[in-house]
């Protein structure tokens, strides 16, 4: 079972549409290096878990991995060979809505080249184009 919320207000949600770019969570805040999403997309709980496993496996108990996105949105689907109608399908999986610029993973406590290699592995698990970013120091 992939990541999902423990409690929700509504079991199902409409699909919605995403406009614009990330105006917050668009900088490295916790670690020293991060992975920034370059496209608007849905990232499922399974993608996030796959990324987490890839990073922790590569780092083997060195450094710390921060996950900055969470799948809050339920996506429903209808079972196979079912006729259309009869109401909305049941929740199938959960997604995080990310906009271009959002930092989704961060790593701290390791050298830059190690963090880069770990985040490249995470980027391969993501359904969107990503780029490696460093923490931006204050002026």
């Amino acid at each position: 079972m992939a990541m999902m919320p423990k409690r929700v207000k509504h079991r199902k949600s409409q699909r919605g549409r995403m406009k614009g770019n990330a105006s917050r969570c668009n900088y490295v805040a916790f670690g020293e290096y991060g992975l920034q999403v370059l496209e608007n997309s849905w990232i499922t709980g399974r993608h996030i878990e796959a990324g987490r496993v890839a990073a922790t496996h590569f780092l083997h108990r060195e450094g710390k991995v921060y996950i900055r996105i969470f799948p809050h949105k339920p996506v429903s689907s209808k079972p196979l060979e079912t006729r259309m109608g009869k109401g909305k399908g049941e929740p199938d999986f959960w997604v995080a809505r990310v906009r271009a610029g959002q930092v989704c993973f961060e790593i701290g406590g390791v050298e830059e080249d190690v963090a880069k290699q770990a985040l490249v592995r995470v980027a391969h698990k993501m359904p969107v184009r990503c780029r490696f970013v460093r923490r931006r120091h204050t002026v």
């Binding site: 079972m1 990541m3 999902m4 409690r7």
Partner: peptide, 13 residues
């Protein structure tokens, strides 16, 4: 993590 996660979220209300 799977053990900690609920199979389906609790609906408030």
């Amino acid at each position: 993590l799977e053990e900690e996660m609920p199979s389906a979220p609790e609906v408030i209300g």
